[in-house]
Computed example of a mutant assay.
Amino acid sequence: MRNLEDFLTSTDGHKIGYYKWIPEAPVIRGVIQVSHGMAEHAGRYRVLAEHFCAQGYAVVAHDHRGHGRSIANGHTGHYADRDGWDKVASDLLFMANQIKSWHPDVPHFLFAHSMGSFISLQCLIAHRPPFHGVILSGSNYGAPLKYLAAAAIARAEKLRLGARSASRLLDQLSFGSFNHRFAPNRTEFDWLSRDPAEVDNYINDPWCGFICTTATWIALLDGLRSIFTPASFSRINPNLPIYLIAGDKDPVGEFGKGVRKLERHLREAGVRDLSCTLYPDGRHEMLNEINRQQVLNDLSSWVAAHTPLQTR
C-alpha cells in the first residue's frame, strides 16, 4: 500500500488536506472515499484503508474545514465565518469529482461517519454525486424542531463569544450526557469505544477531542434542521444503495433508535437498496471497536456485492 498526503484548492481558495492510500495491485477495483466525524481527522482511517487496499480498493479521505490538515489560520473546529454548511458539503462533492478524474472507470463508494454522515446527506440531497454506494456510520435522524432551540443557544453564544470562539456550553449540551450510560467512567470519551487503547489513542491525538466554534455549531444545527425533512430526503437518488452501520449503545444514534428512524425515513423516501446493521453493545466508533474485524468484513461484503462484476 502506498500512501500520499497532499492538498487541493477548493472553488473558494480553501486548502483541503487529504490522504490517498493506493493498493499495490495492477488493477484498482474501486475507490472508497471517506467523510470523517467531528473533532477528529482523516488520518484516523488508515485501518480502513489498509483493509480495503488489501482487496484492491484505493481509499481517499479529506479533512473537513477546521479539522486536521484543513485547519485554516489556526482556527481549529471552524468551518467558516458564514455558509459553513454549504462549504463543507461542496468540499465533499469537490473531492468526489477529483477522485472521479483520478479513477474514472471504477466504482466509487463513500464511507461517512457521524458528522461526516450528515455532511454527506446534505451532499446527496443538494448535488446527487455519482457514488455507486454510500455507507453511513454512527449516524442519526432527528426531528427538525429538536435542533431549533439548540441553534438559538448557539447564536446567543456567537454573540457572546464571537464566531471563531469555542463554546464549552455548546460542547457540554451536545456531548455532556454521552458518557452517562457507561459509568463508572475511566475517561470523558468512554462512549467512543469499548477498547480502552483506542479511547486513549483518541485522547492523545492532538487533532482530536477539541471544541468546535460557535459558527460551526450554528452551521451544523441549521444543516441538520434542513436535511431531516421528507422534502429533503425525497431529493436523494432512490437508486443509490445505502448501508447504515452503528453500535446499539451509540449515544449519537440514540442507542439504535435514531438509526432505525433514519432507516425508516430513507425507506419512506423511496431508497430501494437499503440495509442496516446494529452491532450489539457497540459504541460510537465501530471501526475502533473490539469487534472491528467483523465490522470491516461486513463492509467488504457489502462493497463487493455492489461492485460491478467486471471489476470484482
Rank of each mutant, 00 (worst) to 15 (best):
V88K: 00
R82M: 08
V106R: 06
Q55P: 00
Q98C: 09
S70V: 01
R46P: 00
N97H: 12
P26T: 09
N73M: 05
D83C: 04
T76R: 15
D81L: 15
H67C: 10
H41G: 02
S70L: 01
G66L: 09
R65G: 07
G74I: 12
G43Q: 04
H67V: 13
N73S: 12
R46K: 11
T76D: 05
H103Q: 12
Q55H: 14
V34K: 04
A89D: 02
L93Y: 00
G66P: 04
D105T: 13
R46L: 07
D81H: 13
V106M: 00
V27S: 13
A42K: 02
G68C: 03
V59K: 06
G68S: 07
R65A: 14
E40A: 10
G56H: 04
I28G: 03
S70R: 01
E50T: 13
R82C: 10
V88L: 07
D86I: 11
V27T: 14
G30N: 02
H36D: 03
H67Y: 01
V60P: 01
A89W: 05
G37S: 04
T76W: 12
A39G: 07
G30P: 00
T76K: 12
A96S: 13
R46Q: 11
K100T: 13
E50I: 07
I99R: 02
H78K: 08
G84Q: 06
H36N: 00
A49S: 07
H41K: 04
L93W: 00
A72E: 15
